[in-house]
Design a binder for these strands. Sequence first.
DNA 1: GTTAGCACTCAAATAAAGGGAGTGCTAATA
DNA 2: TATTAGCACTCCCTTTATTTGAGTGCTAAC
Lengths: 350, 350
Amino acid sequence: MNTELSDRQHMILRAIIQNYLETGEPVGSRTLSKSMEVKLSSATIRNEMADLEDMGYIFQPHTSAGRIPSDKGYRFYVDSLMADKEQELNELKNVMLEKTDKIERVLKQAAKVLATNTNYATMVSAPVNRRNTLKFIQLSQVDSEQIVAVIVMSGNVIKNKIIDVDEEFSNETLLKLNMLLNTTLNGMSIEAINLGLIARLKEQAGIHSKVISDVLDAVADIIQVEEDMEIYTSGATNIFKYPELSDNQSAQEIIHAFEEKQQLAELVSETLSGEENHGIQVYIGDEAPVKSMKDCSVVTATYELGEGMRGTIGIIGPKRMDYEHVMRTLKTLQNELDAINHKEGSTPPS
Amino acid sequence: MNTELSDRQHMILRAIIQNYLETGEPVGSRTLSKSMEVKLSSATIRNEMADLEDMGYIFQPHTSAGRIPSDKGYRFYVDSLMADKEQELNELKNVMLEKTDKIERVLKQAAKVLATNTNYATMVSAPVNRRNTLKFIQLSQVDSEQIVAVIVMSGNVIKNKIIDVDEEFSNETLLKLNMLLNTTLNGMSIEAINLGLIARLKEQAGIHSKVISDVLDAVADIIQVEEDMEIYTSGATNIFKYPELSDNQSAQEIIHAFEEKQQLAELVSETLSGEENHGIQVYIGDEAPVKSMKDCSVVTATYELGEGMRGTIGIIGPKRMDYEHVMRTLKTLQNELDAINHKEGSTPPS
DNA sequence: GTTAGCACTCAAATAAAGGGAGTGCTAATA
DNA sequence: TATTAGCACTCCCTTTATTTGAGTGCTAAC
C-alpha cells in the first residue's frame, strides 16, 4: 500500500471533508460524484474511498453509511491549510479596540467577539509573566487606622493591600519605610527575596517590622494569583449547535470543563509550552490534553503582550469546524492583541 | 369550594411535595398511602388529591399520571418552611474563610462551595456601593516616564491607573499635586465632582492639568466598572442532574443565561431592590424576572459588607429543589459574608 | 366518611415493518 | 488497465402497532 496520496485522492479527500464540514452528515459516493467539479462516477469514487479508508483518512460510522473524516483526515486537511498563504482580515480590529482600555475587559471582549464571530466556544487566558521583578513600592496613610501598600511589578502589574495599623504613622516614618523598601527590593525578582533578605529588612524596620511582613505577604500574593491562571470564556453554549457534540453527555462534560476552567488551564499550559510558539496550534480529538474534548478540535494561538507576558486564545468546536475561517480569525486577533503591547500601562486582572 | 386546607389536606400536600422532591416522578395515590405515617387508603387520598387539584395546588402532567406540585403548591410549601424556626449550620464557616482574604476570591469560592454543597447552580454578585465617596488619592513616580495614581474609595475600593508623562516630576510637584487632589476631593461623592470643580482643579494644577484629567478619568472608571455588575457563577452544569431541566432546550437556555450573566444581573437587581431585604427570597417559575428560568426555582439572599455595599447570593435549581436545605445553607452563607464586614480592607474585583 | 374494586386512560417501552442511503463486488465498457 | 453500470446486501432511521403498567374516577359496599 502506498502511503502517498494521488492527486485524485487528495481531491476526493478534500471534497469529503469540506462536504462533511458543511453538512455534518456522513458523505456518500453518489453525493460526491454529483457535487465534484471533476466528473467521476460514484463507483470510481467508492473505490478511492475504500483506499482512503484503508489508509486511515476516513471511516464509516457503520457499514453502509457514508464516510467521515478520521482525526488523521482532519490533520491532513489542516496541514494543507497551514501551507496556504495567510489572508488578511481586520474587521475585528475596530470591534476590539473601541472603548476598551483595561486588559481584562479587552480579553473578555476578545473571547466574546471570537465566539460570536465563529459560533464556537472560545477561551482567552490572561497573560502570565514568568520573570516578575519588583519595580516600585509605596506605602501611604489612608486614614488613622489604615495604610495602603501599592506594589508595582515589571509589566506594570499593580497590586494593592490595605494594612491595618494600630498607631498613626508620621510622614517621616512612612518616607523612611518607603525608602527602605524601594532601595532593598527594587528590581528584585520574586525568587531573589529570600528569608535572609526578609530578616534583614525587618531588622532595619525596627518596630515597624509588622508592616514589612504585610507588604511581603502582598508581594507573595501576586505570585499566587498569577499561578491560578485567569481564563475568560464565551460561547460555551455554542456547542449545542453541533448535534454530534450536544447529544450524549459530552456536552455536559465540555461545558463543565469550561466552567471549571481547570482543564482549560492545562490546555493553555500546553500551548504556551509548545516550542513552535507564536504560531497557531491545532489539536484534533485526543491530541488535546483534555479528555472531555476527545470529540472536539481545539485551535489555539499564543499572543504576546510585551515584556514576556504571554497568553493564549483558543477555540473549541466540533472536529468538523471551519478550520480556514477559524485560523484566519485567530491570526487576526492574535495580531490585534500583540499590537496592544505598549499601548498603555494596564492593570491585568488580579 | 373552601379555600382553606384541612389538616389532612395539608399533610397530603406536604407528602406529595416531599415525595416529588426526592424522586422527581409524579406521585400517585397508592405510593402515598403506603408511605405516609397516617394510614389512609389510596382511594381516600385520591379524593383529597382531586380536591387539591381543584384548588390549584397540584396537577397531573397528563391524565392517568400521578400528581405534581404546581407553582402554587411549591409556594405553599416554601411559605410553611419560612414559618419554621431557623436552624443553625456553620460547617461552611471554616471552608469559607481559610486562606481567602480578597473579596473576589471569597465570592468565587462562595459560589463554588454553595454549588457543591447543594448540587444546584449558583451565583454570587459582587457588592455594589451606591453612595461612593472618595477617601484618598495618591500619585507616585514609578519610573521616569510613568506615575501611578492610587484611588481609594469608601469601602476601601481601590483603583490604580498608570499615567504616562513626558517629564520626570519632582518630589515637590507630586507632593503639591497630592495635596491639591486630596484637599479638594476628599470625602466627595462621585456626583459632587462636577465640571466646575474639575475646571477649578485644573486651573490650580497649572501645567500639570493633564495629570488631573487622567486621575479623574480613573475615578470615572470606577463607577463604570461598578455599573456592569460582576457576577460569579458555579455549578451551572448541575442542572443536567435534573432530567426535567436537562431534556429539551431549557438546559441550553439556562446555561446560556449563566454564561451571559446579563439576565442574572436583572435577577440581582430585582433582589437588591426588594424592600424586605436581608431576608431570603424565593422565586418560583415565572416569578423570577428571567424567562429562561420559568421551569426553575430561584432562591436568593442579600448580604451586606458594611458601608452600604450589598450583594446577592443565589441558587437556581429545579422547582423540586430541597428548599429547606437551600434556605438554611443560604442563610448561613449570608451570615458568613455579613461577618467579613470589617475584617479587612479588601479590593473588590475591578 | 372510608374503602375496595373495576373499567378506563395514556405515556412509555418494546417490537415489527418499511424505506433509503450507501456499500462492495462483478461484469461490461472505453 | 482504468472506469463505469448494475445489483444484491447491509444497517440505520423512522414510522406504526402492540404491550405494559401506573394511576385515575367512579360506584357500591362497609
